[in-house]
């Protein structure tokens, strides 16, 4: 029992990311407004990006810039354990830009839907679509 509890406490950040992801999923499924759905999608994306960046994090490590790269002989040994893994954060840099592009495109689609149907609520939208 105490093993399970200590496992839960030690990985508390992962549980909080799961909570954040579920908030985003709730926003996408249960909210009626299209803009709220888009915000839920963005929260979901940032939760996944947060998880990936936290995988690359190390305790007692510094940011991935070499400390002694320009000394006289260049002979200083580099310990990988002293630097945070930059691979995940570089991948997630692309994901942030893609998420902003998705957000802008979804907002443009929402504006077009409003111009045509004068509503952003999903139930009213469904009623107007069935009237046509």
């Amino acid at each position: 029992m105490s093993d399970v509890l200590s496992l839960i406490v030690a990985k508390y950040n992962y549980w909080l990311y799961v909570i954040l992801m579920m908030i985003g999923l709730y926003g996408m499924i249960a909210k009626n407004n299209l803009v709220k759905k888009i915000v839920g999608m963005n929260i979901f994306q940032t939760a996944i990006i947060l998880f990936y960046v936290s995988v690359g994090y190390k305790r007692d490590a510094t940011i991935p810039i070499l400390a002694n790269a320009h000394d006289a002989h260049g002979a200083t040994a580099i310990h990988a354990a002293d630097y945070i893994n930059p691979l995940t954060s570089c991948l997630m840099l692309t994901a942030i830009v893609v998420s902003v592009a998705t957000f802008g495109y979804a907002m443009a689609l929402a504006v077009r839907i409003y111009q045509r149907y004068q509503t952003l609520e999903e139930d009213e939208l469904r009623m107007r679509l069935s009237e046509e």
Binding site: V53, I63, P64, I84, C90, L93, I96
Partner: peptide
Amino acid sequence: WTIMGAVDVAFT
């Protein structure tokens, strides 16, 4: 992200 040391992600 700044706390986690991913400064490039943070300023993006």
